[in-house]
Design a protein around this nucleic acid. Structure first.
Lengths: 120, 120
DNA sequence: TTAACAGTTGAGCAACTGTTCACCTGACAA
DNA sequence: TTGTCAGGTGAACAGTTGCTCAACTGTTAA
C-alpha cells in the first residue's frame, strides 16, 4: 500500500487533539531542537566522544590526542574542528603546540549524566 | 608528511605520564563507552529525537507518530526498531494498533539535562 | 636560511545511514 | 471469505560521514 508523506490514518480523527498537542509541543522546541540534535550527533561518534572524555580530565595537544586515541593527527584535527564549531572546546596556542580543553562544564555534565543513567 | 597510525610525536616523551593516564582512563570506561556512544548516536538524529520528545509526553501509535513527524509509517517503524533494540521504548499491542511509550525515565532525564545545558 | 615539527585543510573514497517503495503479516469488520 | 487497515521488513537509492593522503601554514631551532 502506498504511504503518503503525511500518512494520515483513520485513527487520526480519534486522537486529533493528542496529535495536535504533540505537534504544538514539537513546534515550541523547534529552535532548540536543531542544536539539541547536533549536540547528541557530535557525541555519537566514538572518536569525538573519546576526545571529550579525555579533555574532561586534562588539557591536551593534538599530538597527544592522536597518540591516546591511536589515530592520525589529521583525523583528530578534523574532529576538533567540529567540536570547535559547536563551541564545545577551546584552544590555546603555545609556540608550535596547540592545547585543547573543554570550553565549559556543560558538556562534561551532560556526558556524566548519560554515564549515570546508562548502566541503570 | 606521512602520519602513521600511532602518530607519536617528539612531545610524546615529555607528556608520557599524562598520555598514559589518559589511555588508562579511556580503557577503564571501555565497556561503557560503546553503549554511551550508541545512546548519543541514537539521539543524534532529528526523527528519533522527535520521537523521544513526543513519547516523553504521551503514549502514541505508529500512525500518530508518522502524522506528527510528517514522515511515512515505514520510516517511523524503522526508527522505532532501533529505539527498541537499545531498549529505550516499549510497546503495547491493542488490536490492530501498537502503542509506543518510553521504557523508563532515564532517557527523558538525559534529554532534559541536555536541554537545560544547551542554551547556557 | 634551512630543516624539522605541530597542526590545518581539501579532495577523494569507502562505509554507513535514513528514507522510500513494494510487499508482507496479522487483526478486525462486513 | 473478503476487504481494509496498522504495522513491519528487505532492497535500493541518495546523501552523509569519518578517515587517509598529500600538500600547506606557521613556529622554532640549528
Amino acid at each position: 500500500m502506498k504511504q503518503t508523506s503525511h500518512d494520515s490514518c483513520d485513527r487520526f480523527l480519534v486522537n486529533a487533539d493528542s496529535v495536535r498537542a504533540a505537534k504544538r509541543h514539537l513546534d515550541q522546541t523547534r529552535e532548540r531542537l536543531f542544536e539539541l540534535t547536533e549536540t547528541f550527533r557530535i557525541l555519537g561518534d566514538p572518536t569525538r566522544l573519546k576526545i571529550i572524555l579525555v579533555l574532561k580530565e586534562q588539557e591536551l595537544c593534538v599530538c597527544d590526542l592522536a597518540s591516546i586515541l591511536d589515530v592520525t593527527r589529521s583525523a583528530v584535527s578534523h574532529q576538533l574542528r567540529q567540536l570547535k564549531n559547536l563551541r564545545l572546546v577551546k584552544f590555546r596556542r603555545d609556540g608550535k603546540v596547540t592545547h585543547y580543553s573543554l570550553k565549559d562544564s556543560h558538556i562534561a555534565i551532560l556526558v556524566e549524566t548519560a554515564m549515570e543513567h546508562i548502566h541503570e
